[in-house]
């Protein structure tokens, strides 16, 4: 009648691609719960916590970071083969992250400008979300991911229920929390209406617009919101640039940037489309 007790402990891996490790740190930051989790899950790979390396197979692997180098491209295919369930965590893995800003620019010119010896830097022309290369079974969004969502994900994994990770807008959480809309009451542009909830509407609680770090929610009408920013007095390029943050490479935001301008690193008046890599089968 109760299966959970008899099943072997699930094997969990944490794999890092191009990222800052901040999402892995959220797992470490669970502190009190971490020991309980470790009693119930075999954490077989976790670079931020241990230098011990183990290859799969994994029941679940959490992937942090974008695919930015040829080596990472090999890694992600290898991890996919070894994982029953592959879950991407954070803005880099789910949307390309900050490093995907280079997708709008000339990658070789960037590399030459930044590094003394660009020939030592092996990287792909674009930084892509993991789902552009392999099938992804689940996502934890955010920059960084939210600790409560991570804990909910783990609890759901262990009990066998569906994790409660709503696909609603940040606005829903903002209104439940009783916050006043910064866009309507103060004229501050806010990405909340088109961004997936999960952060608890953090920024609007501090009189800031949402930066979109959880990325676009389902059917995000980013075009309408961009037009509203312009109606509120932003120039089209300023409005477009508001979408060009942590998750700007995610399609609905990317399309607005293409439409309005404001691509990262591109002067006003030039609005090229981001580089396309001819991506890949297996995306979701």
């Amino acid at each position: 009648m109760v299966r959970a007790t008899s099943t072997p402990r699930p094997r969990l891996g944490v794999v890092k691609l191009a990222s800052c490790d901040g999402c892995q740190l959220m797992l470490l930051n669970l502190e009190d719960a971490l020991l309980s989790i470790a009693e119930r899950i075999d954490i077989v790979e976790f670079p931020e916590a241990t230098s011990h390396r183990s290859s799969g197979p994994y029941d679940v692997v959490l992937v942090e970071g974008a695919v930015s180098t040829p080596e990472q491209l090999e890694t992600i295919h290898e991890v996919r083969r070894e994982a029953k369930s592959l879950v991407t965590i954070g803005a880099c893995a789910t949307a390309g992250g900050i490093q995907a800003m280079r997708n709008w620019a000339n990658h070789d010119a960037f590399r030459a400008a930044v590094y003394a010896h660009p020939e030592y830097v092996e990287s792909l022309a674009t930084a892509q979300p993991v789902s552009d290369y392999v099938k992804v079974d689940g996502e934890l969004r955010g920059c960084p991911i939210n600790g409560d969502q991570l804990l909910e994900f783990v609890a759901a994994l262990l009990t066998g229920r569906r994790a409660n990770l709503p696909d609603e807008a940040v606005c829903a959480a903002c209104k439940r929390a009783g916050r006043v809309c910064v866009m309507v009451a103060q004229g501050i542009p806010c990405l909340g209406p088109v961004t997936m909830t999960g952060c608890g509407a953090l920024c609007p609680g501090f009189d800031r617009g949402c930066y979109g770090c959880f990325g676009p929610r389902e059917q995000a009408n980013a075009a309408s919101l961009g037009a509203q920013f312009v109606a509120m007095g932003q120039t089209p390029v300023e409005a477009g640039r508001l979408f060009a943050g942590f998750t700007g490479y995610a399609p609905p935001f990317r399309d607005v940037i293409t439409e309005l301008g404001g691509a990262p690193g591109i002067p006003a008046g030039h609005a090229p489309s981001p580089a396309s890599t001819g991506t890949p089968s297996g995306g979701n």
Binding site: E168, A169, C171, A172, K175, R176, C181, G192, P193, V194, Q219, N221, S224, L225
Partner: peptide, 12 residues
Amino acid sequence: ADRCLACTNCTA
């Protein structure tokens, strides 16, 4: 629907 953000503010 072209304008509506489906953001839930009206209902909230």
